[in-house]
C-alpha cells in the first residue's frame, strides 16, 4: 500500500530546477566545510505535527486531509501510521525522526495496557528503522495532553500524578533506548505555575529536581547514554508555563 502515490522520491536537482518535488539546495552527499550536508544538518521529521496534526485550532475544527487515518485510537490505526511515516520519510530522504510516546501509540485504560500497545508499535518502528536505515533522533513522553496533567507533571501538587509521570518517562526512555534513540527530550508544557497564591514554588522546584535525578538514575540503570535535551519555553500559550525564567523541562 502506497500512501503518497503522487510523490516520487525527492532528489537534488540544483538551484535551476523548477520541479516542486526536488531539492534545489539540499544535496545530502555534497561536502561542505569538511562534512556532507547530511552530516551537518541531520534532518529529522517530527511525528506529532506531521502525522498527528489535524489542523484544528481554538477557533475551528480539523481541516487536514489524511485519508489513511480513520481518526480512531485503535492499535491498527497506529500501526498503519508507522507505514505512512516511513514512506514519507523515505521519499523525503530524512535520516531521522522523533516522537512523544502518545504520538506513536494510544493511551488505554490502564498504564499496563498502554505500555503493551506501545511495545507493539515499537516492534513495528524497529522493523521499519532496520528496513530503511532511518534512525530515531530522540524520544520523549507526552506529559501535557491528558487531563491528569492539568496542574503539571513533575510539578503537580498531586503526588500520584508525579508518580504516573515518572512511570511514563521510564517507559518512554526504555522505548527510546530500544529504538537506538540518540537523545531524550524534556519539554514541560504544563510545568510552572499559573498563580503564586496557590503555589508552593519551592516544593514544586524541588520535586522537579527530584524527577530529573530519578530520570538520570534510570538512564544509568538501563544503560541509556543519550543526551538529555531540556527544551526551554518561556511565554508560551496561556495554558502553559507563565514564569519568565525558562523552566528546564
Amino acid at each position: 500500500m502506497e500512501y503518497f502515490p503522487e510523490v516520487p522520491t525527492i532528489k537534488y536537482e540544483g538551484a535551476d530546477s523548477r520541479n516542486d518535488f526536488a531539492f534545489k539546495h539540499y544535496n545530502p552527499t555534497e561536502t561542505v566545510a569538511g562534512k556532507t550536508m547530511k552530516e551537518w544538518l541531520r534532518f529529522s521529521v517530527c511525528y506529532w505535527h506531521t502525522f498527528r496534526g489535524t489542523g484544528s485550532d481554538p477557533f475551528g475544527a480539523p481541516t487536514l486531509q489524511r485519508p489513511w487515518d480513520d481518526g480512531t485510537d485503535s492499535t491498527e490505526n497506529a500501526l498503519k501510521r508507522v507505514d505512512v511515516a516511513f514512506e514519507f520519510m523515505e521519499k523525503l530522504g530524512a535520516p531521522f525522526y522523533c516522537f512523544h510516546d502518545r504520538d506513536i501509540s494510544p493511551e488505554r485504560d490502564t498504564l499496563k495496557e498502554t505500555n503493551e500497545v506501545l511495545d507493539k508499535i515499537a516492534d513495528k518502528l524497529l522493523e521499519a528503522q532496520q528496513r530503511t536505515g532511518i534512525k530515531l533522533l530522540w524520544g520523549t513522553a507526552n506529559l501535557f495532553s491528558h487531563p491528569r496533567f492539568l496542574h503539571g507533571a513533575a510539578t503537580s501538587p498531586n503526588a500520584d500524578v508525579f508518580a504516573y509521570a515518572a512511570a511514563q518517562v521510564k517507559k518512554a526512555m526504555e522505548v527510546t533506548h530500544r529504538l537506538g534513540g540518540e537523545n531524550y527530550v524534556f519539554w514541560g508544557g504544563r510545568e510552572g505555575y499559573m498563580n503564586l497564591f496557590n503555589t508552593n514554588m519551592k516544593r514544586e522546584l524541588d520535586h522537579l529536581a527530584k524527577f530529573m535525578h530519578m530520570a538520570a538514575d534510570h538512564a544509568d540503570k538501563i544503560g541509556f547514554k543519550g543526551t538529555f535535551l531540556f527544551e526551554p519555553n518561556p511565554k508560551n500559550r496561556l495554558n502553559t508555563s507563565t514564569t519568565s525564567t525558562p523552566l528546564p523541562v
Binding site: 541531520r42 529529522s44 505535527h49 506531521t50 496534526g53 485550532d57 487536514l64 531521522f96 535535551l229
Partner: peptide, 11 residues
C-alpha cells in the same frame, strides 16, 4: 542532536 522540524503545515 540534529535539525528537527518541529513544524506544522498551516490548516
Amino acid at each position: 542532536g540534529g535539525v528537527n522540524f518541529d513544524a506544522k503545515v498551516r490548516r
